[in-house]
Amino acid sequence: MVIIIMGVAGAGKTTIGRRLAQSLGWRFLEGDDFHPQVNVAKMAAGIPLTDEDRTPWLLRLQELITEALSRGEDAVLACSALKRSYRALLTVDPTRVRWVYLWAPREVIADRLAHRAGHFMPLGLLGSQFEALEVPQEALQVDVTPGPDEVVAAIRSGLGL
């Protein structure tokens, strides 16, 4: 199974994804690590990515998911996947790809981004993230306002893990 942790920047995808993977003994994949350098440079400069910018990245993530499933490897992937079309591309096997949508009120996310250091995504792009977001109906929706341990427990409970 591959669990994809999605949401806007600052929702905690990496933190929660790593903890979830560790608690399950699964592999963790950080979607941001697979962005082409040109995408990272655009985001660092405060320029929102277009669908065209995201396509090579999404295709690489699709490949990683397909490879993991073909090997019978369980994994957790952190990936924004803000649009329905992105999620459709990454759902290579609906019986073995599960979605978790991390959400919180916008002001909570903005506060987290304002205090985050060492990441290429600036606070100024948060608005474009919320504009692009198509809230998933197919995902387990988890409020990330509580601490990470509570969020991981909610995910495990919600997915029956």
Rank of each mutant, 00 (worst) to 15 (best):
A78V: 03
D33N: 10
A139S: 11
G10C: 02
E63N: 07
P94M: 12
R54N: 13
M121N: 00
G160Y: 10
V100F: 10
L123Q: 08
G10Q: 10
L20R: 00
S70K: 13
L61I: 14
N39Y: 10
K13Q: 12
V142Q: 02
I4T: 12
F28N: 04
I4A: 15
T91K: 07
Q37A: 15
V40Y: 11
E131F: 04
D93Y: 01
V151E: 02
P148H: 04
H115A: 00
H35A: 06
A114Y: 02
R112D: 00
V38N: 09
L69V: 08
M1P: 03
R98M: 05
L69P: 04
T91P: 12
A81Y: 05
L24W: 13
L161M: 15
D33V: 07
E131P: 01
L59P: 02
L59S: 11
T95E: 15
E150I: 03
E73H: 11
S128T: 07
I109C: 07
S128E: 05
L24A: 06
Q137G: 13
Q141T: 14
D74Y: 00
P146K: 02
L77V: 15
N39S: 09
A139D: 03
R156G: 04
I65M: 04
L123P: 01
Q22M: 02
E134R: 09
